[in-house]
Design a binder for these strands. Structure first.
Lengths: 235, 235
DNA sequence: ACCTGAACACCGTTCAAGT
DNA sequence: ACCTGAACACCGTTCAAGT
């Protein structure tokens, strides 16, 4: 056993699922989703493209594994021990910054339904929803809504960041966006036009957390409303 | 002018952006995202693949145009004239069913940030948020949160529906999902495991609208809180 | 102006052949 | 058991040549 282990580690440059996934993450971070090809990956690992298939089923599995690693690492750094509201803010910001640093994760997380990485996020949010005292039947809804807000907003932010190369000045970007919205047809887009100007003073982080708090407010209303109902009805 | 118009309509099988987009929608509905290739599209339109490029810039633009048409049609059938809450439910269900019928739209809508189709949805929701009396500064947040919930949940539902071929019995699918969640590591996934059993009696539509109402509750709290603040402060 | 279809520069994946 | 790299069956996109 010790011998077997030593044997597999003897050449630390030998191929392994872990090394492949790490190299894939590097490639994704450097060159984006289109930068991850089996040929480029094989070149980086100094092997043939076919070798990768001995360790990994296909590209989908590779992307899922890469996402899982990145999400896992990001969540490991989030501190849960504050109040539920603060902990949820912490999780939200952790995910936000993780997707900002690895934009491809955002796309991957909802390409497929419920990959393990998404469950990890749901789990961490759900624990805080429980701590918040939400009734049992409402916890799933609450966690899901929080999760989809966090992921959507994170993805949106990351996508905006990578839209142009090189990334323009933040204020310029918002100005361009606001101007575009203001050019929309007044008959078709009255609401969108009416909020366009707010984009000019848009604070991503503040807006993001305001959304989280809006949902938290909804949760606390639902909780108080339903808390009177005993789990096992008396009659 | 009449002559020019007649000339362009003389052969109703001549290529046009509109015909290309319609054919693309057909192909996407029949064969999914991977079914849309320029070769297949050209075959269906009885032309060469290069001809399409005279009318459309590239595949991204084609997907965006196809999504816009489908979203536009779906929203046109939604009735806005009920109470704001009912109208928002109507928009939500309209989007939900549209994505269920055209699963590829769900993926497309958040592949790129703010394509026109997403703005259409935001617009319709935003009008109702205004009607709800949300304060000016909170409208954007409220509409965004509602929009991301609606799109996430719709996409999730559609993705689940297409996961297996042929689609299994609904109850079987939920049972499988619940069982998988219950097999997760108890130390890593206590919350997820604790709600797994609820999946067995999961009602998609009810859960979806419960999420919408949760957010609406949050909006009304924020609104009452802020409504006292006059738009133009007196001092 | 608009269409044709071969050609280009790629992909993911497979597989006989090696060690 | 694990790796190699050529080969297969595709893609999106371009472009000279046609009408």
């Amino acid at each position: 056993m010790t011998r077997a282990k030593r044997a597999s580690e003897r050449r630390e440059d030998s191929l392994s699922r872990e090394r492949i996934v790490d190299a894939a993450i590097e490639l994704l971070d450097e060159a984006g989703e289109e930068g991850l090809t089996f040929r480029a990956l094989a070149a980086r690992l100094a092997t043939g493209s076919g070798a990768i298939y001995w360790h990994i089923t296909n590209k989908d599995e590779l992307l899922a594994a890469a996402s899982d690693v990145v999400v896992h690492r990001a969540l490991a750094e989030v501190d849960d021990h504050a109040s539920p509201r603060k902990a949820i803010h912490g999780i939200a910001m952790g995910v936000f910054e993780m997707v900002d640093a690895h934009p491809w994760v955002g796309a991957e997380l909802d390409r497929h339904p419920q990959p393990i990485a998404t469950l990890r996020i749901l789990e961490r949010i759900g624990r805080q929803v429980q701590a918040l005292g939400a009734p049992r039947g409402a916890q799933f809804t609450a966690a899901t809504v929080l999760g989809s807000h966090i992921l959507s907003e994170s993805r949106q932010n990351a996508a905006n960041g990578r839209l142009y190369h090189p990334p323009p000045d933040r204020a310029d970007f918002l100005e361009t966006l606001a101007a575009r919205w203001e050019e929309l047809d007044p008959d078709e887009f009255p609401f969108t036009r009416s909020v366009a100007d707010q984009l000019r003073h848009h604070d991503d982080h503040a807006e993001f957390l305001a959304g989280v708090d809006l949902i938290l407010a909804g949760i606390s209303v639902s909780s108080t409303g339903a808390r009177d109902v005993p789990r096992k009805p008396k009659r």
